[in-house]
Design a protein around this nucleic acid. Structure first.
Lengths: 191, 191
DNA sequence: ATGAGTGATGGGACTTGGTCTCATCAACCG
DNA sequence: CGGTTGATGAGACCAAGTCCCATCACTCAT
């Protein structure tokens, strides 16, 4: 496998993130990102499906961790326990370097509709993956969908908390899912 | 307000839907849609922000109906009752002509990633709108988010049911939300 | 009526995202 | 040392989306 400067992909991500922060997403051309990374437009699109995707790498890996954890949880534990295991399983990818870039990345996404759109699709993807994994364990369809949706809600809020405070993502996710479950109880109890 | 052939916007929607069904979304150029509608590319983009949006018109109106219904529900009724009112309130827009085009529209969306993306964003928009309306009534933040998310889940599933079976959308939505609530109970009860 | 104003449309130049094809060049292998 | 492989460069090409200006239909005041 021939290679000149290593980590072309990582260099593209870094260049994109910096340029987006400096000048905004829409004011940055793909050719410019490639240039800063010492590459060309052709190479950019060989590494990423489109301009948005440079900010969403590694999300397939997350989905795999989630479904793997659900499959590995004993069936007796119940759907929400499996979902909790799924969230905790993703913690291995939440290291120091992700923490430092995460806030920058989230700010860029928040400022652009195209990116919020892509983000929403990724979350739907997670929810579908978890729901499918639950159904494979015999969880009824609707129950699986509800559990997965609550899990994604906790995942997103846990991620926000983690970006602000740092620490162990697994622990934060567990606690946030607990908060969500408490909110569900409050909803049904209060009527 | 000068006008030649009336309903330019509606003609564009119809032309787009037909062409997307015939040849697929990605094989259809905006110029082609405009041509079939007796208009030009310029005019298309004057009516729709982008190519995707031609399939998602009127969704702002839906959000308005939802938030209006939530605001009009007595606070004592509780968040989920308000969400139910929000779903029922959208029923006024689910008439015969929407039923006939709905399945066609949904098939087109399902077959294309860009469109699934846009759809996901619209659903997030509904959820945020409902959650904000609930918070304005004093519902705690997380409770509002959970209630809104469950409502959107019911809305989507109810919409699918309605497309298959027809009938009164309000009634279907009410029933579907009931199913979701039962699933929530099963999740928490079964552990 | 007639002419000015208004709002919707046409038309075309232009930028950029994204695809495709072909040439190139570094490393590896026999 | 020559051939293969895999990543890259280069450039043509198409369609989405923006911009600007001309035009045409309709309205309204004089």
């Amino acid at each position: 496998m021939g290679r000149w400067e290593p980590d072309a992909r990582a260099r593209l991500v870094r260049a994109a993130l910096d340029l987006f922060s400096e000048q905004g997403y829409e004011n940055t051309a793909v050719a410019q990102i490639a240039e800063r990374a010492g590459l060309t437009k052709s190479t950019f699109f060989r590494h990423f499906r489109d301009k948005r995707e440079v900010l969403f790498g590694g999300q397939d890996e997350l989905a795999g961790l989630m479904t793997g954890a659900i499959a590995a949880t004993p069936v007796e534990a119940g759907p929400l326990a499996a979902v909790e295991a799924a969230l905790v399983a993703t913690a291995v990818t939440f290291g120091e370097e992700r923490l430092s870039h995460g806030a920058q990345r989230l700010a860029v996404i928040a400022g652009n509709d195209e990116l919020r759109e892509r983000s929403a699709l990724k979350m739907v993807g997670f929810a579908v993956a978890m729901a499918d994994a639950l159904k494979a364990r015999g969880v009824p369809e609707l129950d699986a969908a509800v559990a997965a949706e609550l899990g994604i809600l906790a995942f997103q809020r846990g991620y926000d908390r983690w970006l602000e405070a740092g620490g162990d993502f697994g622990e934060i996710a567990r606690r946030t899912l607990g908060d969500v479950r408490a909110a569900v109880q409050a909803l049904e109890g209060g009527e």
